[in-house]
Amino acid sequence: MNISMRQKPSGIWIVDYDGEDGKRKRISTGTRDKAQASKLAREIVLGKIAPPAAHPSQTQTRAKEGGPTLTDLWDTMLKDEWSPSRTKSQRTLMSNIKILTPLIGGKLVKDVGDQDLVDLKAALEAKGYAPATVKRKLDMVGRSLTAAVRRRIIDERPHMPVVVVKNEKDRIVSPEEEALIFDAIDARAQREPMRQWKRFRALVRWLIDGGFRLSEPLQAKPDWIVEVKGKPVLALPPEACKSGKARPVPLTKAIMDTVPYLKATMTDDRLFPMTPATAWYMWDTIREDIRLSGKGNIDDVNLHTFRHTCLTRLIQGGMAIHWVSKWAGHANTIITEQRYLRTNAGDLLDAFETQLSD
């Protein structure tokens, strides 16, 4: 039986194993002691004892006395300084609150300390979020704690942990790295045929060829694939897009080659019935496999890097910046230019020589 153990940021050991139905299962041992966790894991997997009862979440045990929790504070701020009339990024706010609530939302504002914020940073990193994403979520917590000082809920704001954000927008995947990634996924699929590696392979292909944000293909349904002028397109509805505006994304032959398998293995109404956490967990596994193989190191590549890779390739291939911006779903071309339009010495020399020849 394939059993693996890992430790959560809280220190609790969890176990992944193949169930009798062939599906991958996960349980918590409820202990921080590795030796005890190993013993419990084997007994739980063999059915000798029941898994420990889950502890109620922070939001379920919210204190009714002693002041507001962070969730209470966020609810209040959504009605005034974070209201739609004063803050445009409502979708981002709601997404951040949804992610942060189970991690720290039930904590009393007055009890939030430096270590709680360090633990929150570690928990977000453990979920696979890129440094820039972790920073944005911590910034939101920081803004709400600053508001708590203004509202006289607390006297001073705790120190926010530092998040180092490299300029990962410059990072794209080379063709050689792309081949290495798919080879590593194929190797995993051979070793673990009962897991979702073939579906994950298809997801990576969609991200590289389509320039999607991860959340977009994970919501995709078969009837979103339509034909426009005889070519396949994924018609993303407004609710699936970060901008809240519908947009079509052309689908390559390589993407379309994955569709029959995806349709045949659907377990709900989506082509990719998996969670973002599962996708990030599988990606971390592939990065580790490549590093341990000695064939390369792509630890600085995350799932969003594939979007940068696709859009950069479109620009390098000669697509007008206006159309790349439409493809990406950016609000305007300025965003696209700042993130993806690069000028190098070769480009300048080519332009100079063209000018001389005119």
Rank of each mutant, 00 (worst) to 15 (best):
M1V: 15
M1W: 02
N2G: 03
N2F: 13
M5E: 05
Q7I: 14
W13D: 05
I14R: 01
V15K: 07
Y17N: 09
D18F: 06
K23V: 14
R24I: 10
R26W: 00
I27V: 15
K34I: 14
A37G: 02
S38P: 01
S38N: 11
A41T: 13
I44F: 01
L46G: 07
G47D: 04
I49Y: 06
I49E: 08
P52M: 04
S57R: 14
R62C: 09
K64Q: 15
P68K: 02
D72C: 10
D72N: 13
L73F: 06
D75A: 13
D75N: 14
T76Q: 12
E81Q: 11
P84M: 06
T87Y: 04
S89D: 09
S89C: 08
R91L: 12
R91K: 14
L93A: 08
S95R: 09
S95W: 03
I99H: 05
I104G: 04
G105P: 09
V109A: 13
K110M: 11
G113A: 10
D116M: 12
L124I: 14
E125F: 10
Y129V: 04
A130L: 07
A130P: 06
V134N: 02
R136P: 04
D139K: 05
L145P: 09
A147K: 08
R150S: 14
I172G: 05
S174Y: 03
E176N: 07
F182Y: 12
D183M: 07
D186S: 13
D186V: 07
A187C: 01
R188P: 05
R191Q: 14
R191M: 14
F200G: 01
L203F: 03
V204N: 01
V204R: 00
I208Q: 04
G210H: 00
G211L: 02
G211K: 00
R213Y: 01
P217I: 01
W224T: 01
I225F: 00
K229A: 15
P238G: 11
E239A: 11
K242C: 12
K245M: 07
P248I: 10
P248K: 11
L251W: 06
L251R: 08
L251V: 10
A254W: 00
I255K: 00
L262E: 09
T265E: 05
L271C: 02
M282T: 02
T285E: 11
T285P: 01
I286M: 05
R287M: 08
R287K: 13
D299K: 05
D300E: 08
F306T: 03
R307W: 01
T309S: 04
L314T: 04
V324P: 13
N332K: 03
I335C: 03
T336H: 03
T343D: 02
A351G: 02
A351N: 02
F352P: 00
T354Y: 02
S357W: 00
